[in-house]
């Protein structure tokens, strides 16, 4: 009982900073998600149908992004851009870093989706007189899109969790609020619980929404 009273008292005291931290976390995610989705949309056709040089360059980018830590990518942007005379905010550096890595992962998901559509669908479309582009747009991409809904959803949940890395370059997001509060108030468990619950609600809700969308779509087309 004492613990509960104590817990609520601490949460009440932290409420304003939790709200502002949550707002920053959401903002990072909402800025990075469209950038990552669009970036992947740009990478995929270059990777799949670009000439051999473009293919190699995009391939190298994707592999480098997938096989190095996101933290270092964010550091590279945050500490590197000033050398080029660019001074984006910490927030922007975090968003760009997160979007750049997740674009690489998403590009692989897009490619996998397109390649998973059977050659027979291409045959059927071309037999009707569709050009390559018409077939891609009307037959292949819509099916690939449906098929990769699930993997994209999983990737976006990972992205939301990765937003916590912006705390490493001084953005006061939810994770940073937790860290600072623990040090300032010298209580650990109560604050950790608050932070953890908020993240859990965020990723859990996102996951639930994505699953509902996926089920709706897939049950139609079997």
């Amino acid at each position: 009982m004492d613990f509960l009273v104590n817990l609520l008292a601490i949460w009440a005291r932290l409420y304003p900073s939790l709200v502002s931290g949550f707002a920053v976390t959401i903002s990072v995610a909402l800025a990075a998600i469209p950038l990552a989705l669009l970036g992947a949309l740009l990478l995929t056709p270059l990777r799949m149908w670009g000439g051999s040089i473009i293919h190699a360059v995009t391939g190298a980018y994707i592999e480098f992004m997938r096989n190095t830590p996101l933290l270092l990518q964010i550091y590279l942007i945050y500490f590197g851009l000033p050398l080029l005379g660019l001074y984006p905010s910490e927030f922007m550096c975090g968003v760009i870093g997160i979007a750049m890595q997740h674009a690489a992962f998403l590009a692989e998901i897009y490619r996998g989706g397109i390649e998973s559509i059977s050659q027979r669908q291409w045959d059927a479309a071309r037999a009707m007189g569709m050009t390559w582009a018409t077939a891609l747009r009307n037959v292949i991409l819509p099916q690939a899109g449906l098929r990769i809904l699930g993997p994209i959803g999983n990737q976006l949940i990972i992205l939301v969790k990765d937003t916590s890395l912006v705390s490493a370059i001084g953005v006061v997001d939810l994770t940073m609020v937790g860290k600072v509060s623990i040090e300032r108030l010298a209580v650990t468990l109560e604050i950790f619980l608050a932070i953890a619950l908020i993240y859990l609600a965020l990723t859990g809700a996102l996951g639930a929404v994505l699953r509902i969308i996926e089920r709706r779509v897939l049950e139609r087309i079997g």
Partner: peptide, 24 residues
């Protein structure tokens, strides 16, 4: 050219063993 061949394919209807309907 691809466009010419696509045009010619319009005049030829084809039905496949595996149906190949567009599931979406």
């Amino acid at each position: 050219k691809e466009a010419e061949n696509a045009k010619l394919r319009e005049q030829v209807g084809m039905v496949f063993q595996s149906f190949n309907l567009f599931p979406h």
